[in-house]
Design a protein around this nucleic acid. Structure first.
Lengths: 250, 250
DNA sequence: TCATTTTCAATCATTTTCATTCAAAAGGAA
DNA sequence: TTCCTTTTGAATGAAAATGATTGAAAATGA
């Protein structure tokens, strides 16, 4: 029996049932227990299935959730502090835009029962916000799994019908010369538009984003204020010449 | 029996009933009391359930979900069958609108890896659909906790930029004379618009909705086709004079 | 309150499964 | 063929899961 064929059989069986034991698979393919183990090891590396004690189980359908949750773990305390600092700027009656992203997400818990209206392009913020008793508007648009954002013409159109007191934007890179950048051009347009529609725009960034440059430019340094945990250094000083920076300690 | 499999069984049972005793679970899975205890301990750590003296109970995530989940339970088998029947109408390459609602939600599992584009006004369908590998567009709008729908001018504006091969609409009432009705006028407008933008519009309704009249009119009987589990009777016959009805058995 | 019953957490012995190693078998190239 | 690499199956001790047992804790009912 060809190795590839065996792999197919294993995956096919797992598609029908949610789990399968090593012994079932061994019997079903005619291969020995050891071989099946090796197969499962390889297939797990390829993210085709998940090994469990005694066998294997289907990979959790959610192509989306894991990515976001993984990301969530990175630099978590910093993000939480930045989110808290952002929330402190919010006043009664504010109309806010909150961009999709793991850092901006940290603002949410601080909005409980605040009298604000939130517009967001993050479809998975909605349930949380409603639960906190906040009035929520979602932009339309195409749903992007990787970042959990809504993008495209519909997102931009919907945004046009709002004006914000404050907007909180996530960003992938900031560079003294190249300004704010992010990988996806369509996301960049939405961020840019939200900034333009706000009296005050805040970019939330942990220190790892400094001097990074991504593919799509969102704007120049002066186009927004910055909230970060970056410690004082020459790069930060340079940026502070151009715009206001709120520095949080962790 | 695989450990993972047992965990799934436990969670599945808890999803149906609100609580389950250790003994029930032991009997149901064939595992010993000790093993079940260990399972519950682990699953509680993962926040999948809450242990209580003598067994375990469902976890309630937040203030919002319960309402919708309660509703979910009502007439569940009927809704599942109706959702399945609706999915059978879908063809390769279709552009679909799927309305927010517990009945329309039952279509989702049948969309796995189908080559379709889905537009929806239900913000909590997005993650599921992306997980199934479907391209998703969300309408904009104000998020309504009670029904999980996006409504208002932004929703209508976003919808205008699409045309659908088929739309699947949830509805609260159908009446031979008064047509389709639903409680919220803003939701009614969205439903109406989606129907207008579709080559074929389908209203999904379990039999409890017949001869019900709600506050806001969505349209006349002939404005959509109907998918229901209503058994043959005079009321259904009357309606069938006006429009096509697909009847499912449960 | 107290006594009784049920459930719980901790521990132990047993069984099952796992990762690692090694040698045989099966290809592939010169 | 011979030499070399890859795949396979078996063997091993280590790790994990399981079921039974026990005294402590919690619930129950008088």
């Amino acid at each position: 029996m060809l190795t590839t064929k065996r792999h197919e059989i294993i995956l096919a069986l797992l598609k029908k049932r949610k789990t399968a034991s090593i012994h079932e698979l061994s019997e079903h393919t005619g291969a020995s227990i050891s071989t099946i183990r090796r197969d499962l090891e390889k297939l797990e590396q390829e993210e085709k299935l998940k090994r469990v004690h005694g066998g294997a189980s289907q990979i959790t359908n959610n192509r989306y959730e894991p990515e976001l949750e993984e990301k969530q773990g990175l630099n978590e305390p910093a993000k939480a502090e930045i989110g808290k600092a952002a929330a402190e700027l919010i006043e009664e009656g504010d109309c806010l835009f909150i961009d999709a992203g793991t850092t901006t997400q940290q603002i949410l818990p601080h909005l409980e029962d605040k009298n604000v209206v939130v517009v967001t392009n993050a479809y998975h913020f909605v349930t949380t916000l409603l639960g906190l008793g906040v009035e929520v508007y979602l932009t339309g648009g195409r749903a992007k799994a990787k970042t959990g954002a809504l993008i495209g013409v519909q997102a931009e159109e919907t945004l046009q019908s709002f004006r914000f007191d404050k907007s909180f934007i996530g960003m992938n890179g900031i560079h003294a010369k190249h300004g704010y950048t992010t990988p996806d051009p369509e996301e960049a347009r939405v961020k840019r538009l939200a900034m333009d529609l706000s009296k005050r725009a805040f970019v939330l960034m942990d220190d790892s984003k400094f001097q990074q440059v991504s593919f799509s430019k969102v704007g120049d340094i002066r186009d927004a204020e910055i909230i970060t945990n970056r410690e004082e250094d020459s790069i930060l000083s340079e940026i502070q010449k151009t715009t206001r920076v709120k520095v949080v300690k962790i």
